[in-house]
Design a protein around this nucleic acid. Sequence first.
DNA 1: CTTATTGCAAACGTTTTGCACGTTT
DNA 2: AAACGTGCAAAACGTTTGCAATAAG
Lengths: 149, 149
Amino acid sequence: MITYDALLEQFKQLLKQNGLKFTKQRELILKFLYENEGHFTPEDIYMLMKKNHPDVTIGIATVYRTLTLLEKEGIASSISFGVQGKKYELGEKEHHDHLICTRCGKIIEFFDDIIEQRQEAIAKQYNFKMQDHTMKIVGLCETCQQEEK
Amino acid sequence: MITYDALLEQFKQLLKQNGLKFTKQRELILKFLYENEGHFTPEDIYMLMKKNHPDVTIGIATVYRTLTLLEKEGIASSISFGVQGKKYELGEKEHHDHLICTRCGKIIEFFDDIIEQRQEAIAKQYNFKMQDHTMKIVGLCETCQQEEK
DNA sequence: CTTATTGCAAACGTTTTGCACGTTT
DNA sequence: AAACGTGCAAAACGTTTGCAATAAG
């Protein structure tokens, strides 16, 4: 588990390498993702930001721009929920897939070697140069199965 | 491969069972999906509908409503492209996953037993009651790999 | 002092909705 | 006749963009 200081340093390096600037807003968003386990929409982050840091002005556009940047740099990653938008998480961890509860929205992460291997094999079989892959299993989590009754 | 008449009959049954009505618009959209292999956005379908059936009035809202209905009834299925919307196809065929080319948008369908089995196993492991699952491999198709150079 | 970044509001593209009118049953 | 479906236009939704002001290097 990387420390926040190391992550921050890494981020600063990336910014410098690309001629970008280190701002209060970018720092706060990075910090937020580091401190909060879980998956958040840009809206979530924007709201919590305004609430927890009333002293810093921040616009929703900046949240979107920063999340896009973090994802491009490989620091964050997102899962898409179709029309309902995306949710972001810190992405320094290993690749993983998601189980999503359709009732309460809970997201469970998992990783399966066999699935990963089959994906590579399939891409190869169709002469596809794989850039990314996602898999989502949607259903009812344990708790919600009980409460459905 | 189901015949169109059988599909139509099935659709009429479903409508009747749910107290819904059989309309010209619903029929045309079903027919369109039956006759056209491939994946289409609601917009695609709307445009082609207006072009090929200038005699029938149809609104984009009806296309959305009908596609949602067809998907709910299991007759059609969709893949999501995030902000860029969804694409629909007739869903009477066997479950399958998708390879999507990020350059030309081509969609290749595949089915892999091992992946299916692992998905079931994983859902079970997390006490998840699986309702659906999707997997997308995105990358460059054979043709586009060549043209990238 | 140059360049990137910001917040704001307006624009965007897709999807949904309210409503009066039309069609199916 | 009752109920559902329709087209239309307006609204909603998440997201992106142009711009003048601001902050970082």
